[in-house]
């Protein structure tokens, strides 16, 4: 049972995982320790896997014959529906961890709730993603605490990153018409309840990390509506270069 809002809703989930996975892919070979190269690659693979399942599903719902690659490589930035937080640049390892943690905490709540979705296909994808996200959160929360409560330098770096990225969390927890319609249909959870659980979990980890929770910031430019920061265009130019240069070929 799908409505007109289903396609954009699935796309939001898909694009968020795709964009975040793409960002983590940039780290491979450049992480602070070899073990972290593997850890980040593992998360990137999980996110890419989620993106592929969700994009394929979205394409089916849309019914215009677009598969995962057509959606990933042939849409322009304005058609992408990832949350803006996902497209923010990696910066240093601390910034990457802050971004990852805020999103992991959100994805965990979301996927847990979506595991009970009235949309069976989505519920299946979410159930698999929950296990992956639990591990991602363990990793990112663990690192946020080490960096927040490590040295003066590490604390300063993640505190600054937290202040800069906090405004993008507004979008994760503020429902729009699509969110509300999906919630009404039992496909997706209500973001009101999710907000409370997210804030509690994030608050607990920030406290352990000796980090100050930034002041609430509303931010009106929501990637999930296709209103992105300048970063997405550059990322897509790099990501989409080959299929766009050689249209219609098989790789």
């Amino acid at each position: 049972m799908t409505s007109a809002a289903t396609f954009p809703y699935i796309l939001r989930l898909a694009d968020t995982s795709l964009v975040l996975g793409q960002r983590l892919g940039e780290w491979v070979g450049h992480a602070p320790a070899l073990e972290e190269d593997l850890a980040l690659a593992n998360i990137a693979l999980d996110l890419l896997g989620q993106a592929r399942l969700l994009l394929s599903y979205a394409g089916e719902i849309e019914g215009r014959g677009r598969d995962e690659d057509a959606l990933a490589f042939l849409r322009d930035a304005a058609e992408f529906c990832n949350v803006s937080l996902a497209e923010q640049p990696n910066g240093d390892f601390g910034r990457t961890i802050v971004r990852q943690f805020l999103l992991d905490a959100w994805q965990l709540e979301l996927y847990e709730a979506l595991s009970g979705s009235t949309d069976a296909r989505l519920a299946g994808i979410a159930a698999k993603a929950v296990k992956e996200t639990r591990y991602h959160l363990r990793f990112s929360a663990g690192w946020l605490v080490r960096l927040g409560d490590g040295t003066a330098e590490s604390h300063a770096r993640v505190a600054a990153a937290l202040e800069e990225l906090w405004r993008f969390t507004d979008e994760l927890l503020t429902p729009d018409a699509v969110d509300e319609e999906m919630a009404a249909a039992g496909v997706a959870p209500s973001l009101a309840g999710l907000r409370l659980r997210w804030e509690e979990r994030v608050g607990a980890v920030l406290a352990q990390a000796t980090l100050k929770r930034p002041a609430a910031a509303s931010y009106l430019w929501h990637g999930k509506r296709g209103v992105h920061t300048e970063h997405l265009g550059h990322m897509l130019a790099e990501m989409q270069h080959l299929p766009r240069t050689f249209p219609g070929v098989t790789w």
Partner: peptide, 20 residues
Amino acid sequence: SLHAADARMAIEHARDVYTR
């Protein structure tokens, strides 16, 4: 073997390196 700063990290590294 592998290197880690603490026990929790060691478990995660072991999982990432040896159980892929």
